[in-house]
Nucleic acid binder design. Structure first.
Length: 913
RNA sequence: GCCGGAGUGGCGGAAUAGGCAGACGCGCACGACUCAAAAUCGUGUUCCCUACGGGAAUGAGGGUUCGAUUCCCUCCUUCGGCACCA
């Protein structure tokens, strides 16, 4: 209990700071299943092949340069810089390692040279690498670094592989925190947001990432939200947006509607501020996300982690069954119910309505009125106040009304109970106490009849009366269906269910039906700092969209910051007054704004052409870059953003705006960085790690390397401020390895073949690990190779061609991880052609990586007793002979013949004595 | 309760088409350099024992196998999601 409470508090604190930020932090580490991994490898394989072809042609940097009429940024680079001049200056000045001076210098140069601008190039395969955009809270924290730097490294790797890579960045700039802050201290959200963006942009740049800043998109800028509004109208015109009066979760503190996913915990508190949520009836805008429920359950063709797919599947929660019409005894009203077990219809001995069900008042007889009213009030309060224990006792009240069971004309009582939810199904159920645990408990308590309709084979009917029987059996007491076999399969797969559904449809009593837990997306927010909903209400013509040529509907700047429960836009004296698009008469604007998830549902499209003003994006850019090839971010968005953006893409596809079934082909989630105390980072705990401080102390390269090294990326781990010293040491040692003037030895024992072998083995491993997001082992492999190189240099490698090759390949492998030092050593110390970031990934030499001889452990009865060395090409028999010839083995054999000798895959010899 | 992850040295982690458990790094210990410290470099570092040898060990217990961290079964712990879903 205490633990739960603690967690709740954590969430609160984190959420307070900024929801999006907190979102990135509170990630759960979930490794993609081995299956998923395999898929990923396969998926990328064909593309990689295509690239390989290019890579194979030449190692010249020019292959990376896009061939285009317009001189691209990258192309222009080599002529601009006289790299050699810098070399001399640098070398003379100082060869001591000073990242604090070196890193900003390169960042500035790369920016000036437009090194990371992405321009359409039909001659190269494209790669759209996307990382979730931050909310501009005003401070970049270590969680952002953890999410973004490995994504950046991988984007850089892809680029070196010959892909034309787009890796953009922007800001999800609308949202509550800025408005709440405004209420507190009066600073306008716009001012604060754009100041924060300014600050965070600087912080982001200190990462040395290859973001294409010319493609930056900010969702709170009118050029952006004009198109958010435009999309709303598109969806409205498709019939996907509708208005509905509905009870919504409401935070009395934030004075705002909350989406279902923004209500947290057993006590149903506000995601942002922790206040217990209440219900409120409001007229709101919804998107028909449920229309796409079935399609959203289909993940064919996308390489997403199994966990995310499972989360989304459970969230949508499709169940198959039938809807059946019962009639009320008085008034003969139709009452539709949904059931997954139509085969148990004959066992329905009563009905239960949700207390909020619209027919309750009509059915209730005068003598039951008082009790029903009391229960309704109590039930309403229950959902507001803390929810009790999960398995709390069932309660309910008899309405006095009856319904007729359509399958057997039985007259059955209608009760109300809070275990029936108005928000699921139809808000009314048929109760089959014999075969449903809840109904059973309810029937027992209120002494309602229990009629078994499924009899387990070999057991008597009464055996079932002691508990709700759920299992295989034969239908009984079920009129025409007596004797029909049923099992526990769901839907049509169950022969009993299937037969009954057909019968119901034939009789016109009911029909096959599918029900979802998933609900339509409520997008109205009674707040100021969001994209206005571009709708106009006229007394005569009702709701109409703002004509497209009047977009964007801009936010007024002069508003009052009063938490009144109404949008500040409603209280603005003039803003809402406008003309009806149909008749021109005086009308009123919608004063609610949109959920910010609406903005983030399409930001990947705005990145394509953030300044484009003829549409949300430039078709040419779309056709080249989309879909997103790799999307990285926190798993906490599994049932929110990641579902919304899929819905959005599918809806726009049906509108002819986008193409293909899915917006993001491959998804990978990173874990969470915890504080050194193994707890979630939070200001109140004082365990927050500030990346700026680390960058000042160690330089960005070290922070990047450590972030990629210290944990399995998808798992996350607690921070260790001593551990980063290891990465700092690695970088310094690399620096020393490359910059120390070393004399070639005369008595050289250097083995060039061996060095090449290690270099190419590392290259194979690092390439594989970049592909599969295994960043920590990239760094450890590079560390190992560095240690090898130190040994080689000690043995006299300096000056040899193998040494030079090792240095070049080493820097290229390092470049995606630590772009600054790699550039510095490449351009200024090795005197190679600027920039290393325009080089192609080194080519793997299979022959060089091959071992001449292999060492095999020899197991005797499962224990390693000896090792033998054999030539790499030795056959099984040869290996066997060598193993049996070993003295140690002979000793264990004691002159006897072995029972069995197994040579396993040339990796081990196992002898059974 | 249901669904999905994860349990490996003092710590982060490495190794799974079943094949040398503990790569790499942190920390620690000792040594070199130093007047000294830091930095740097070198060596060692899973545990136990009667210690140039042997035994045990990947959350626990069982199974399959010549061989299991890896596969199967039953549990335990932990993290996350959902939770009266009809």
């Amino acid at each position: 209990m205490a633990v739960t409470k603690k967690n709740k508090t954590n969430k609160k604190v984190a959420a307070k700071k900024s929801p999006k930020t907190a979102a990135i932090k509170k990630t759960v580490a979930k490794a993609p299943s081995p299956k998923g991994k395999k898929v990923s490898v396969k998926k990328t394989a064909p593309k990689a092949k295509a690239v390989k072809a290019i890579v194979a042609v030449t190692e010249k940097p020019k292959a990376v340069v896009p061939v285009e009429k317009k001189p691209s940024a990258i192309q222009a680079v080599p002529e601009v810089i006289p790299a050699k001049v810098e070399v001399k200056e640098e070398k003379k000045k100082d060869i001591s390692f000073n990242p604090q001076a070196m890193e900003p210098r390169w960042q500035k140069k790369w920016e000036t040279d437009k090194l990371y601008r992405s321009v359409i190039d039909e001659n190269r395969p494209k790669h759209y690498a996307l990382t979730m955009l931050p909310y501009p809270s005003g401070d970049l924290h270590i969680g952002h670094w953890y999410a973004m730097t490995p994504s950046d490294a991988r984007a850089r790797f892809k680029r070196m592989q010959g892909y034309n890579v787009l890796f953009p960045m922007g800001f999800d700039a609308f949202g509550l925190p800025a408005e709440n802050a405004a209420i507190k201290d009066g600073v306008h959200p716009m001012k604060r947001t754009f100041q924060n963006i300014e600050k965070m942009r600087k912080q982001l740049k200190s990462m040395g990432a290859m973001f294409d800043w010319e493609r930056e998109a900010v969702s709170a800028s009118p050029e952006y939200y004009k198109w958010t509004e435009w999309f709303f109208i598109k969806l409205y015109k498709m019939g996907l947006a509708y208005r509905k009066m509905s009870p919504v979760d409401w935070c009395p503190n934030c004075n705002t509607t909350l989406a279902r996913e923004q209500v947290w915990g057993d006590d149903r508190h506000c995601e942002r501020c922790g206040t217990p949520v209440i219900k409120k009836d409001l007229d709101q805008w919804f998107f028909k996300t449920t229309k796409y429920a079935d399609e959203l359950l289909n993940f064919d063709g996308i390489d997403w982690p199994q966990t995310v797919k499972t989360l989304q599947t459970n969230w949508i929660d499709r169940s198959e069954g039938a809807s059946v019409i019962f009639k009320t005894e008085t008034g003969h009203r139709d009452v539709e119910i949904f059931t997954t077990r139509p085969d148990t219809l004959w066992g329905a001995t009563f009905m239960v309505f949700s207390p909020e069900h619209p027919l309750v008042d009509e059915i209730t007889t005068p003598e039951n009125k008082a009790a029903i009213e009391e229960y309704k009030i109590q039930a309403a309060r229950q959902s507001d106040i803390q929810r009790g224990a999960v398995d709390k006792e069932k309660t309910g009240v008899f309405t006095g009304g009856y319904a007729i069971n359509p399958v057997n004309q039985a007259r059955i009582p209608i009760w109300i109970a809070d275990y029936v939810l108005m928000s699921y199904g139809t808000g009314a159920i048929m109760a089959v106490p014999a075969h449903d645990e809840r109904d059973f408990a309810f029937a027992r308590k209120y002494e309602l009849p229990i009629v078994p309709v499924i009899q387990p084979e070999g057991q008597s009917e009464t055996a079932v009366l002691e508990f709700a029987y759920i299992g295989d059996g034969v239908m009984v007491n079920s009129g025409p269906f007596n004797g029909t076999k049923v099992n526990t399969e769901k839907g049509r797969k169950n022969p009993g269910i299937s037969k009954v559904i057909d019968w119901l449809q034939e009789k016109g009593i009911g029909k096959e039906s599918v029900n979802y837990r998933y609900r339509d997306w409520l997008i109205s927010r009674q707040r100021y700092w969001g994209a206005p909903i571009p709708m106009i209400h006229c007394e005569i013509h009702g709701w109409n969209p703002v004509p497209e040529d009047q977009l964007p509907v801009t936010l007024p700047e002069d508003v009052e910051w009063k938490p009144t429960g109404e949008s500040p836009l409603k209280l603005h004296p003039t803003w809402k007054n406008t003309a009806c698009p149909v008749c021109g008469g005086p009308s009123t604007r919608e004063t609610d704004t949109m959920d910010t998830f609406m903005c983030s549902s399409w930001y990947h499209l705005r990145y394509l052409s953030p300044k484009y003003d003829k549409g949300p994006f430039d078709d040419a850019e779309y056709n080249y870059w989309m879909p997103v090839d790799t999307y990285t971010g926190g798993i906490e968005h599994a049932t929110m953003h990641l579902l919304y953006t899929r819905f959005f893409h599918k809806a726009l596809r049906d509108a002819g705006i986008t193409e293909g079934g899915e917006p993001m082909v491959q998804l990978r989630n990173q874990g969470m960085v915890l504080g050194e105390d193994n707890e979630k980072m939070s200001k109140s705990r004082g365990n927050v790690i500030a990346p700026d401080v680390l960058v000042n102390k160690y330089g960005a390269d070290t922070v990047r390397a450590y972030i990629m090294f210290f944990a399995r990326w998808e798992m996350g781990a607690p921070w260790d401020s001593q551990g980063i010293e290891g990465s700092a040491r690695w970088i310094r040692r690399v620096w020393t390895l490359f910059t120390d003037p070393t004399q070639p030895k005369t008595d050289s024992t250097f083995d060039g073949r061996q060095l090449r072998r290690r270099v190419h083995q590392t290259l194979r491993k690092v390439t594989h690990d970049f592909e599969s997001f295994e960043f920590n082992t990239i760094i450890s492999s590079l560390m190992e190779l560095m240690n090898e190189m130190y040994k080689a240099r000690e043995a006299g490698a300096a000056g040899s061609p193998e040494w030079t090759e090792a240095q070049e390949i080493y820097l290229k492998m390092m470049a995606p991880v630590t772009p600054h030092i790699a550039e510095e050593l490449w351009t200024n110390h090795m005197g190679k052609k600027y920039s290393i970031h325009q080089q192609l990934w080194p080519q793997f030499d299979e022959a060089a990586a091959k071992e001449d001889s292999i060492e095999l452990p020899v197991q005797i009865n499962g224990k390693v007793r000896d090792r033998i060395t054999v030539p790499a090409e030795a056959g099984e028999e040869e290996i066997k002979a060598a193993a049996l010839a070993s003295e140690t083995v002979q000793k264990y054999l004691e002159g006897k013949a072995p029972k069995k000798v197994i040579v396993a895959n040339k990796r081990l010899v196992s002898i059974v004595v």
